[in-house]
Design a protein around this nucleic acid. Structure first.
Lengths: 202, 202
DNA sequence: ATTAGATACAGAATATTATTCTGTTACGGA
DNA sequence: TCCGTAACAGAATAATATTCTGTATCTAAT
């Protein structure tokens, strides 16, 4: 099942998906700013009118792609969390789901890194923070339940997320930009262990 | 001493610096893609001809700002490394210099995060990787000398940089985008300790 | 089955914006 | 002092995003 099929299912959305697919390809190949509407149009053999009808403008297309990527990533995370029991399992689920998603969908991951900032101060910034808030909500609920009241670590709460996925994110980024050779999947367990160590739970 | 004074010193470069200053402000306020040359022009009261004369095109201005930021950040890192003796000190120097630089120059740091990807697949990508290579060179030299032959950790080399600065970078990014409240400076020591723990040196 | 009302699409027309070009001025060394 | 070069201005041009108008297709109610 394709990422786009999930976010935009059905026969009616066929062209919409084709536009998104072409957009993803162009944005990754040329960079977001450098790709023109005409490139995307020719990439899926449609008209500019259709593109603007479905997405409003270039920013809208950029944002739609980012949201699709984030939803898919979050859904994998929820899958992994569903089978986790202990806090230790939870931390692993976060790191492993992150790494596996990037390794499975490198093109989407690459796009996500690039697009986040563009969207973050474009016209869809409110929608972005709203969606982020909703996702964080889910996460907090899981940990609240798993930790059952007692604190996971003595570290300040706002620091914890960065300690957990910071290294994985950094490595994935390095991989996508070609600075390192090995797929992050090679280090999935190592990264999960390092994250747990970083939390410093005795 | 201003960052721009360092990269573009002297009276002759006054307008050049003014353009860069205006560019930084616009890019951070509106996003890189959304800022027009006209906005920058009016921001420093010059002509489009002058801007193109000094930087060739918009990409050139974007890249010049990024390179200035990276040079300044690297220079602070070298300062911190200069007084470090042990490998443990070296890791601290990396984390602390990173955190302090972001806290000192939040506008430059914010810009750096955004611009890296734009430049990474724009026309200056070769120059970017060349500069990165040169900087990594310096770093490796320090650690080769400090570790004096024996290995710092059993972890694979390509993973180490991500373990060290991944969390700091992640937290700094969260701070700049307003997702967390406390300045990263508050956690500078904590982040340095966590980085060391993550390396898992017994 | 028919039709009103929407939605989907095409492509020309327009508006914005990046870039170039031509000319003028200031500067620095022979 | 004068020649060559770099610095700047601003109009002209080119590339690109966006809008607009028209046509076809679909959906749902009668």
């Amino acid at each position: 099942m394709d990422i786009l099929e999930r976010s935009y299912p059905g026969r009616r959305a066929e062209l919409k998906r084709a536009i998104l697919r072409a957009g993803l390809e162009c944005f990754n190949a040329q960079g977001i700013e450098a790709t023109t509407i005409e490139m995307i149009r020719s990439g899926c053999d449609t008209s500019v009118g259709a593109i603007y009808h479905h997405f409003g403008n270039k920013e809208g297309l950029v944002a739609a792609l980012l949201f699709a990527a984030m939803e898919d990533q979050a859904s994998l995370r929820q899958q992994y969390l569903a089978t986790a029991q202990t806090p230790r399992d939870g931390v692993s689920a976060l790191v492993l789901s992150y790494v596996d998603w990037v390794a499975d969908q490198p093109e989407w991951a690459r796009y996500q890194f690039n697009a986040r900032f563009v969207v973050a101060n474009g016209p869809h910034k409110e929608e972005l923070v709203a969606r982020n808030r909703a996702r964080n909500q889910q996460l907090q609920e899981w940990f609240a339940r798993a930790c059952a009241g007692d604190k996971l670590t003595s570290l300040p709460y706002e620091l914890v997320p960065s300690l957990i996925i910071g290294p994985a994110e950094s490595y994935c980024r390095a991989w996508l930009s070609g600075r390192v050779a090995s797929s992050p999947r090679v280090y999935r367990e190592t990264l999960a262990e390092a994250a747990w160590r970083a939390l410093g739970v005795a």
